[in-house]
Computed example of a mutant assay.
Amino acid sequence: MINQSELENSKEVGIITDISDKELHLALGLSDPTCNNEISQQDQNESTHDTSNSTAPSEPQLFFQAVGLVRGQYLPSTEKLGSGILLLDDGVIAPTNLLASAVYTVKKHPNLLESPQVWIVYPRVQVKNPPFLNFAIRGARLPLEGEDAEVINQSVDDFSIRGIVTYTNRKAGNFVIKVYRNFMPWKEQEGTKYKPHIFTITGVLPSEGLPCGQFWDLKVKRVADQLVLEDATFITQVFEPKKPKKGRSKRQGQKRKAKRNQSNPQ
């Protein structure tokens, strides 16, 4: 939990306020999310071969990403194949869902559900109740022809996370990174808000100043339901960090209210 006293210590703690989709896309050179993104199917097909497509980041280094490998057995729920749990090799049980590509794969190869597999996953985090780390499975990472399975196993629990740091606490030894969308959907429902994926990483970034508002490329390791920093590469400064306003404590507010009542008796 982040408290006010931590935020006031600007030497140890940094924070950046929430970033709107428009601010983010303009800062990274992406298309304006408020513009009309409805285009014809022909235009979509042509844009896939057009390197000047305005919806792509101007710098490939600024692609957001959160992906990794885990090893465990996927156990679907009785109601739905695409929703279940992953029983990981270290005993962690993580709520998991299958993406469309993974549903197709396990339907075609049902034997994948009979034993632990190495899965390509997108990590997700929930903050209300443990386990805090859960996954969306993209597919199974099977050895290619002539590939040593042991090489794949050495990468299990390794994750690549690329995003913008929005909070850091060097004293506590952790920071928060947000992973946004790289592309706006072609048709965005009115009133729909796409929230970024937020990850709390254990570790300290190798930066001289506060890294808030900076884009970083991280290599992290899953340890139980935590993500631990192993390596980090600074990419660029996207937003300048903002010092949080000092808010009045609840006790101070009660004292002021009592004082007003004494000076203005009814």
Rank of each mutant, 00 (worst) to 15 (best):
R248N: 05
R138N: 12
G72K: 01
S155A: 10
S52C: 06
R181A: 07
K193H: 14
A140K: 03
G163Y: 03
N174L: 05
N169V: 10
P130D: 06
Q252K: 13
S52T: 11
A136Q: 13
N97C: 07
F234L: 12
P130G: 07
Q73E: 07
P95T: 06
N169M: 05
V70I: 13
L24T: 09
D89L: 11
K108A: 15
K178P: 01
R141T: 00
K187P: 00
G209L: 14
S20R: 10
W186L: 09
S40T: 12
G209R: 13
A66D: 04
L112K: 02
E188D: 05
G146F: 07
P123R: 11
P123S: 08
P130M: 06
E188T: 15
F199P: 01
K246Q: 10
L62W: 08
N134L: 09
T166H: 03
L75G: 02
Y104C: 04
H25E: 05
H25R: 15
D217G: 05
I15N: 02
S160A: 06
A149C: 05
L142R: 08
V156N: 10
T48E: 07
G253Q: 12
F215Q: 00
P33D: 03
V151D: 10
P131W: 04
D225H: 07
I152V: 06
L99V: 09
P110V: 12
A102L: 03
I15L: 12
K250Y: 12
P206G: 05
K246A: 15
F234C: 07
L99Q: 04
G82S: 11
N153Y: 14
V204H: 00
L98G: 00
I93Y: 07
I85W: 15
A140E: 11
Q226M: 08
V121H: 02
R256A: 14
G213C: 04
E38Q: 05
N261Q: 15
Q42A: 12
L86G: 01
I2Q: 07
G191H: 07
F63Q: 06
L75E: 13
R260H: 11
N134C: 04
K245N: 10
L133V: 01
T233N: 01
Y167R: 04
V121Y: 02
V151I: 09
T233P: 01
C35H: 13
P95N: 11
D18S: 12
R124E: 08
I15E: 04
L98V: 08
K243D: 11
D43E: 13
A100Y: 08
P116V: 15
N9F: 14
V70R: 00
K259M: 13
I2R: 15
V228H: 03
V118Y: 14
I137P: 00
A94N: 02
L75D: 13
I39P: 01
L87F: 02
V156E: 03
P110D: 08
L75A: 13
E147I: 06
K195Q: 12
Y74P: 01
P116R: 10
G139Y: 03
D90Y: 15
V228K: 04
Q237M: 12
G253D: 03
Q189S: 05
D89K: 12
N111F: 14
R222Y: 02
T105R: 12
A94S: 11
N111T: 06
P265W: 06
